[in-house]
Design a protein around this nucleic acid. Structure first.
Length: 482
RNA sequence: GGUCUCGUAGUAUAACGGUUAGUACAUCGGGUUUUCAUCCCGACAACGCGGGUUCGACUCCCGCCGAGAUCGCCA
């Protein structure tokens, strides 16, 4: 049978780190099995609906390259893929249950139910609505909730991650199937949809584990075959032991995109948070993840989100793209991350800058801070120069002399041989002639050129900057010291 | 309170019942003729506790402790 998985978010806001993984794993499994990955929007709670949230979800999945085979925008045989547009289907299933005597309209006012609940809580006994089941139930009609009529029994099932599970009658209850407003609850809608859409693996967070017996009762009552159940452990917040949520400041996935994180790195990191293939490999392409993914190696315990490791992985991916696919491939990703002044420079020039700076980027947005001096003359900051840990040992006149000697020597290098190699040998000669330590001489020239806390190797920086700009900047500093 | 789940270094994880308990991030130290970074080398650092089974237990069993989930006309 073809493997069909789905990601079924509610359009109540952005997708964050704590919940994308329940899109990633189903996607990986579906692709590995050459099956289908469905996107379904669970928008049955009109009160929590957020305008634009569906687009945010689509945007997030597309960025991560988790393309869905059926769902919004692409359609599919079971369209529509918005639950709010599938009311008739749920009602049809509901009627089946009513006819079978497994569902009833509940006239009990909410306040009364609340009263029952309170009684139980006060007596510290579990609240089960079926103990308060109304005896006189009207015919079901819009405006009145429909409840499932539980017939509690022992259930056994297998969770692909958690293993063999069992539960007794004490957790089965008369859950609401259709709300007063006519929309189905999640508990009912997802079962109907998964069946209609042929979903073979229901993958979702562990928080649904406790309600599984109720779902099993529904499958049975509707005569549906159970899909495979896969409980995904939570991603925990950096502090505390709670699952990561918006209240912990969980950033949206797209925020990381805007901060210069690559989708490859995000996918890689998240996939490996709570899953591994048993080898010591750390960096995986999407194709490798698809190939190696397996349900039985998903962790059973929660995993803590560690942004530092994500950023490390992002640095690895930046280097990997540059080294394996070349500067052009990486450059394509950098659009929008350059400092504003870079706009005035050619693509070729920016690529040169990128190829000497790429290996110190953790995120693409580091470009803004790290490359400004390549595009505009830096502001002279003599304090930075004079207080440098190597340069502060030298007097101002020493610095001036050193700078002048350097300018004279570098000026002797004509435009035609102003390249990394000859610059390096010239710099080496300069070291010999002045008798200075590299730390002193090179720091001086480096700072005079960039006034940045760090920069690439000096010869490379000068090569990219060019002869004119390099000499002009050195001269400007020489004048300022006087 | 009921039910369920989880428990290897700070973090993520590996380990047929037999290993000096491995790897990565982080941290600290060192190296690659400047800085920052990359890269390389090294250090620190863990089986929640207590019983049992066994020649031998991180691994199997029981108890305890700790953490989490759930008990909505939210998903």
């Amino acid at each position: 049978m073809e493997t069909v998985t789905r990601f079924a978010p509610s359009p109540t806001g952005y997708i964050h780190i704590g919940n994308v993984r329940s899109a990633i794993y189903p996607y990986l499994l579906a692709k590995q099995q050459h099956g289908k990955f469905i996107l379904r929007i669970e928008d049955t709670d009109r009160g929590r609906y957020v305008e634009g949230a569906t687009e945010l979800i689509e945007d997030t999945l597309r960025w991560l390259t988790l393309d869905w085979d059926e769902g919004p925008l692409v359609g599919g045989p079971q369209a529509p893929y918005f639950q709010s547009e599938r009311k008739e289907i749920y009602h049809a299933y509901a009627k089946r249950l009513i006819e079978a005597g497994r569902a009833y309209a509940d006239p009990t006012p909410p306040e009364q139910i609340e009263q029952y609940r309170k009684e139980c809580n006060d007596q510290k006994i579990p609240f089960l609505y079926r103990n308060y089941r109304p005896t006189d139930t009207p015919e079901w009609h819009p405006g009145i909730p429909l409840r499932f009529k539980a017939e509690p029994q022992n259930y056994q099932w297998r969770d692909e991650v958690m293993g063999d599970m069992h539960a007794g009658p004490e957790v089965q209850d008369d859950i609401i199937l259709i709300k007063k407003d006519g929309y189905p609850t999640y508990n009912f809608a997802h079962i109907v949809d998964d069946a209609e859409m042929g979903v073979t693996h229901v993958m979702r967070g562990v928080e649904y584990l406790s309600s599984t017996p109720n779902y099993l009762a529904l499958y049975d009552a509707l005569g549906l075959t159970r899909p495979k159940l896969v409980s995904l452990p939570h991603i925990l917040a950096p502090q505390g032991n709670k699952k990561l949520g918006k209240r912990d400041g969980a950033k949206s996935v797209t925020e990381y995109r805007d901060d210069g994180v690559l989708p490859e790195a995000m996918l890689n990191y998240l996939a490996c948070l709570g899953w591994n293939d048993g080898t010591e490999q750390e960096i995986y392409t999407k194709e490798e993840l698809i190939e190696r993914f397996s349900l039985d190696r998903i962790q059973t315990s929660g995993a803590r989100y560690d942004e530092t490791k994500l950023l490390w992985m992002n640095g690895q991916w930046i280097r990997r793209i540059f080294n394996e696919r070349g500067v052009d491939a990486l450059f394509e990703r950098t659009e929008g991350f350059w400092p504003d002044v870079a706009d005035e420079h050619s693509v070729e020039y920016r690529k040169k800058v990128l190829s000497i700076i790429y290996d110190r980027l953790k995120t693409l947005s580091d470009l803004r801070e790290m490359t400004a001096y390549f595009f505009a003359d830096p502001e002279l900051d003599m304090n930075m120069l004079l207080n440098n840990k190597f340069l502060k040992k030298l007097s101002e006149s020493e610095l001036e002399n050193l700078l002048k000697t350097s300018i004279a020597k570098l000026s002797s290098l004509p435009e035609t041989t102003w390249n990394a190699d000859s610059l390096q040998s010239t710099l080496n000669q300069l070291l010999q002639e002045t008798g200075k330590k590299p730390a002193e001489l090179f720091s001086l020239i480096r700072l005079a050129l960039s006034f940045a806390p760090f920069s690439p190797a000096l010869n490379l920086t000068m090569e990219v900057l060019g002869r004119d700009a390099s000499l002009a900047r050195l001269n400007a500093v020489a004048r300022a010291i006087q």
